[in-house]
Design a protein around this nucleic acid. Sequence first.
DNA 1: GAGCAAATATATACCAAGTGCAGAAATACC
DNA 2: GGTATTTCTGCACTTGGTATATATTTGCTC
Lengths: 216, 216
Amino acid sequence: MDDDARPGLRERKKQRTHAAISDAAIALFLEHGFNQVSVAQVAEAAEVSKRTLFAYFPTKEDLVVHRLADHETESARVVRAREAGTTPLAALRGHFLAGLDARDPITGLNDHPVALRLTRMINDAPTLVARMDRFKRGAELALAEALHETANLPDLTARLTAVQIVSVQWELAQENAAHMASGESADDRHAGAVADAELGFALLDRGLGSLTRGPA
Amino acid sequence: MDDDARPGLRERKKQRTHAAISDAAIALFLEHGFNQVSVAQVAEAAEVSKRTLFAYFPTKEDLVVHRLADHETESARVVRAREAGTTPLAALRGHFLAGLDARDPITGLNDHPVALRLTRMINDAPTLVARMDRFKRGAELALAEALHETANLPDLTARLTAVQIVSVQWELAQENAAHMASGESADDRHAGAVADAELGFALLDRGLGSLTRGPA
DNA sequence: GAGCAAATATATACCAAGTGCAGAAATACC
DNA sequence: GGTATTTCTGCACTTGGTATATATTTGCTC
């Protein structure tokens, strides 16, 4: 819809307003907490009417979550862009490990103060946590579609596969974020995070039966 | 908390009020839709003040979801109650298949008109869907704890295992519910549901690698 | 059974998220 | 410059949920 072909004054202004609202919101939320700041305050700080704010962001939660929108289809894109001969799972494993090396916040392995405050802010606000779940669900469906289309999997099989993969990635990120929240540094945690990721992807690849049957 | 040891007039009255509110809510929601009915209307129908309603149910969504509360720990209980020598996954597989046979609504394989209207009502209300996600998350954590305590699994391994299992069960139920929503009868669907469940649990047991490596 | 303390219910007023609407202001287009 | 079209704004309104202070009910003791 929003082709970035030609700026145009109107488009540029819209983008600036969008950014102004978002920035004001994040700043206020990080400072005082999500539930402690009303959308009216955000609107005032962004010098915009409440009505306009809701024209840009359909809900208060979107003021935070819209920043993750790109990540929603990340796994799906990785699967689609994998090289021939690479299984989807191998591609995703490689991508996740690369994310750990890069300290990509989506892996949870990032100890920037802002990242820490952000995860804490989210976990303190139930409605935000719920919104993150919807985000996760979107990632599952996008990945399922990618698997269905590029890996020759039946629809249900693709969905069953996708939900397992996304759930494991999510839990790994939660684990890393919990370590960060308890004060550990990303560098100190890195080795453990890699080991945990290997465990998670091994479980996905070889199945839970491998726990009782021993390693393949 | 609420020991059912001795009734007592006060307790009985509370239970009756609780049921009255819940029944009024479900009836109105099924009739007009979740978003189309206000909590004030529910309170009026139940002949109770709005404040009292919120004393019994912390949120509007709880008016619906509290009925599933028991199911939240169902998988965890199945794992804890499994016979010696049975793996958790085998126990859960057996339980799920039994649920299909019994047309347990939690498996999605139930074509009672009320069940159909209920799933439709939930899917039409985003806040209810979000609440179901929280319910699912609770089931994951409960199962993780059960696996940790009874299957000798490290904490993270238990959580990774639990999220995979619950996610697959959930997706299987979604699939069945979708079939019901499109008019198929539970009896007609049963064989397919069993086959899908076998697929799902096979993926869990043998891993996603089995898709590329072929059957074990 | 009267009387009192604790629990529960109610009415009222209130806050915050989100929507509908009518009009003002800005932008694009000619 | 004039006009059609977006976009923004102010205002009133609905709804979920909470605070407070007051009334009602229940349980218990004598």
